[in-house]
């Protein structure tokens, strides 16, 4: 049990009258890679946004690395600092250069010295292969480059968990691969990852577990091999037949 890093129990969430999450149970172990898929509106983004409390859940418990996430969480910023997130729309800060995007949070949240933060940022930017763009502003970069910068920015906080919210959905087909390559590398280095994506090729390559969500519920949870070889529910079969 000690290596369970995320524990989600009976989580419910409503937007007004509409229930987006219904009795979600999920357990993630350290270094585990989980891919969440499902049709749009099925609540998968909401689920991972609940993990770092960008959305608030109304019922159930979410425990991240021993800290329960709730209204009373005093150190929600501390939890967020340990959970990196990559968004569909990149959400880089347009008024800062790529390097400043990466050093901002380490300097002001982790109280790192500017020099240390910069060398850390350089290291991660090298890893995602955009070190030559470090002085440019986000608006001057292609979508793929921006998304890789966003990954580097999240990594600069040295998080224990990385959340990816449809990281390739806003990209041109040619740029998807460069982003996925970075994510595959990250997975190989042993990062705990929860990825919402429709890229089934990526899922087959890195995922330990697959989760299929529909209408706010986890319809199917299985190891990657089982998930693709013999899906149990009809809804999953239908989805897979359309997407593959």
């Amino acid at each position: 049990m000690s290596d369970t890093i995320i524990q989600i129990q009976k989580v419910n969430k409503w937007f007004g009258d509409f229930q987006v999450l219904k009795e979600i149970d999920l357990e993630v172990k350290e270094k585990e890679k989980i891919v969440v898929c499902g049709p749009s509106g099925s609540g998968k983004s909401t689920l991972i946004r609940c993990i770092n409390r960008l959305e608030e859940h109304q019922k159930g418990t979410i425990i991240i690395d021993g800290t329960e996430i709730s209204e009373d969480t005093k150190n929600i910023e501390q939890v967020r600092a340990d959970v990196g997130m990559v968004f569909q729309q990149f959400n880089l800060f347009p008024h800062l250069s790529i390097l400043d995007n990466c050093t901002l949070a380490p300097i002001w949240v982790k109280k790192m010295s500017k020099k240390d933060a910069e060398s850390l940022a350089t290291e991660h930017l090298e890893k995602v292969q955009i070190i030559d763009q470090a002085q440019k502003f986000p608006g001057q970069l292609s979508g793929g480059q921006q998304q890789r910068a966003a990954i580097a920015r999240a990594l600069c906080m040295e998080p224990k968990i990385m959340l990816f919210d449809e990281p390739t959905s806003a990209l041109d087909p040619e740029m998807i691969k460069e982003v996925l390559d970075v994510m595959v590398n990250l997975a190989k280095q042993g990062m705990t990852m929860i990825v919402v994506t429709h890229e089934m090729g990526f899922a087959k390559e890195v995922a330990d577990q697959m989760i299929f969500m529909d209408e706010g519920m986890i319809v199917e949870k299985a190891t990657t091999k089982d998930f693709f070889a013999n899906p149990k529910s009809d809804r999953t079969k239908l989805f897979l037949s359309q997407i593959l």
């Binding site: 770092n52 960008l54 910023e77 967020r80 340990d82 997130m85 959400n91 901002l104």
Partner: peptide, 15 residues
């Protein structure tokens, strides 16, 4: 400002 800017800042642990 788009909501994503708030999300991104929060997700980096900024208060």
């Amino acid at each position: 400002l788009p909501r994503g800017q708030y999300d991104a800042a929060k997700s980096l642990g900024m208060g």
